Simulated assay, not measured.
Amino acid sequence: MSARGREEGGDGRQHREDPGHQARGGRRHGTFEKDDLDHPEELVAALKDAPGPTAGFGALTPAARRSWVLHLTQARQSATRISRLRKARAKILGGEGFNHR
């Protein structure tokens, strides 16, 4: 064990003060906000217009909300996003995420 390792904690490991750093395996894991994605305009409009999807979407877990946002934003055309949103309404109200089986 080097003298530097003993000075830093006695066990020879060097730990960083970075909150995204995990000492095990030297892998870095960042922290993300739970709702860090921009919601598509069609979803925002649907949530404002109808009370049903608002309650359903808000009741979803952050991962389920994220899965729906990703599904909707992958469509290039607005018409496709609207169609996907109409098809998803029952699942969203049922509390299911996009990948729910």
Rank of each mutant, 00 (worst) to 15 (best):
Ala59Gly: 14
Leu37Ile: 10
Leu37Ala: 14
Ala3Ile: 04
Asp38His: 15
Thr31Arg: 14
Lys87Gln: 13
Gly10Lys: 10
Glu41Val: 10
Gly5Asp: 00
Leu70Cys: 03
Arg4His: 10
Ser78Val: 05
Leu60Met: 08
Gln22Glu: 08
Thr54Asp: 12
His15Gly: 07
Arg28Leu: 11
Arg65Ile: 00
Pro51Gly: 03
Ser78Pro: 09
Pro40Gly: 06
Arg66Val: 01
Thr54His: 12
Ala90His: 04
Leu47Ala: 02
Arg89Ile: 03
Ser2Gln: 11
Phe98Cys: 07
Arg65Glu: 00
Ala64Pro: 01
Val69Ala: 05
His100Tyr: 09
Asp11Ala: 10
Asp49Met: 13
Gly26Val: 00
Thr31Asp: 08
Ala88Gly: 09
Gln74Asp: 12
Ala59Lys: 10
Phe98Ser: 02
Leu43Glu: 02
Pro40Cys: 07
Ser2Pro: 14
Phe57Tyr: 03
Gly52His: 11
Gly10Phe: 09
Arg24Pro: 00
Asp18Phe: 01
Pro51Leu: 02
Asp36Tyr: 06
Leu43Ala: 02
Gln74Arg: 14
Ala23Trp: 09
Arg27Met: 08
Gln74Cys: 05
Arg76Cys: 01
Ala63Leu: 14
Ala50Asn: 15
Phe57Ile: 00
Leu60Lys: 10
Glu96Ala: 08
Ala90Gly: 07
Gly12Arg: 15
Arg16Ala: 08
Ser67Asp: 01
Arg13Ser: 12
Pro62Thr: 07
Glu41Tyr: 06
Glu8Lys: 11
Gly9Leu: 08
